[in-house]
């Protein structure tokens, strides 16, 4: 794609991204307004006197028209003000900034496990299509996909954590292991501090929940990789590659997996969002701070701003992942480039 067309494509995608976020924000706002009950009463607490509730109502601007509230709300968002949590009494943004790294670390490692196990297994099954290997991998994939995360987490804790004592089963670090916080990511910060003990401690706390989170997702990756590879491997260009004298490995990677990048990246993009959802459960079972604990509290406390903040942050992450996926496809498939070039120059 020519640079000017690429610039136009990016501009179009960013505009789409802003529109999407605006949509998310608006829907969240409308949902809050649709919740029955008095927001001012909820914010002031059940024990508040009617006078106190009125004070809170004015302070939060809830006495103004809905439209004015919407405009105020958008204005605050633009300034990065996500409101104040009625539970922690801290700005929601600050709370989230502390918690995001834990969840991102968990989802990140889960995604790494998901792909480093799922992709090779899918490739292996496709290469052995219609053999016992293929059937076993496929069955295992279906089985993994059917395991409830909650149950898997408990089993993992009992077996690997308690019985075998291989890794810790709760929290994010061992008491006494301190890491100076810079990015908020324990693994990164410990490496930045050059503290390998802290790093391996953080990783040990991370690996079991990440694996538990990854397993059901792996099931889909295996199946999509396998399926798209089998389709790709039946194509004539694969026979042509063999006729050139290519090794089986070259054929599998250059003419099979190479052609499966587009469908697999679509799936992975969707999975990032789903994993954030799955992380809530895993974090709760493994007693890890993160989106899960925060969201559970926020919902239980009717902490409106906290819930909005969470939804927004997840929305932003998912939208950016979507953009990344589109860029990957743009790089991987010239036919997508052609389509986008046509659109950009239309």
């Amino acid at each position: 794609m020519a640079p000017s067309l690429l610039a136009r494509y990016l501009a179009r995608r960013l505009a789409l991204l802003v529109t999407t976020l605006w949509g998310v924000v608006t829907i969240v706002f409308l949902l809050i307004k649709a919740i029955p009950g008095d927001e001012a009463q909820a914010a002031a607490g059940v024990t508040a006197t009617p006078e106190q509730v009125e004070v809170v109502r004015q302070r939060l601007g809830l006495d103004e028209s809905v439209l004015q509230q919407y405009v105020n709300y958008l204005g605050r968002l633009l300034h990065g003000d996500l409101g104040t949590s009625i539970f922690t009494f801290q700005p929601v943004l600050g709370d989230l900034q502390q918690l995001i790294p834990y969840t991102v670390e968990l989802v990140g490692l889960a995604m790494v496990i998901n792909l480093t196990c799922g992709v090779p297994l899918g490739v292996w099954a496709a290469a052995r299509h219609r053999t016992r290997t293929d059937n076993s991998v496929r069955l295992a994939a279906i089985f993994c996909g059917a395991l409830p995360t909650f149950w898997l987490a408990m089993i993992a804790q009992t077996l690997i954590g308690r019985k075998l004592g291989l890794v810790p089963i709760s929290g994010v670090s061992t008491l006494g292991v301190e890491t100076p916080r810079r990015t908020g990511f324990l693994t990164i910060d410990s490496l930045l501090a050059g503290d390998l003990t802290a790093f391996s401690d953080a990783l040990a706390h991370l690996v079991l929940p990440a694996a538990v989170l990854a397993i059901p997702f792996m099931s889909f990756v295996i199946r999509v990789v396998r399926g798209s590879m089998i389709t790709a491997l039946e194509a004539d260009h694969v026979t042509a590659a063999r006729a050139k004298g290519a090794r089986e490995r070259t054929v599998l990677l250059q003419h099979g997996l190479r052609n499966a990048i587009a469908p697999v990246s679509t799936l992975v993009g969707l999975q990032v969002g789903w994993m954030m959802g799955g992380a809530v459960m895993v974090e709760t079972v493994f007693s890890r701070p993160g989106f899960g604990s925060y969201l559970t509290q926020a919902v239980a406390q009717q902490d409106t701003f906290a819930v909005i903040g969470m939804v927004l942050v997840v929305g932003v992450i998912v939208t950016f992942v979507g953009l990344a996926v589109d860029l990957v496809q743009l790089a991987a498939d010239p036919r997508v480039r052609l389509l986008e070039t046509r659109r950009a120059s239309a």
Binding site: A240, A243, K244, Q254, R258, N259, A262
Partner: peptide, 29 residues
């Protein structure tokens, strides 16, 4: 294969890999 016997397959529309450049596919031989 390729070095002693070259094979040109039946359908030119499907013999080329759609996601790889022409050059890389000719060079592959």
């Amino acid at each position: 294969r390729g070095r002693r016997i070259g094979l040109m397959l039946q359908d030119p529309m499907t013999t080329l890999n759609p996601v790889r450049s022409i050059g890389s596919q000719v060079m592959e031989s």
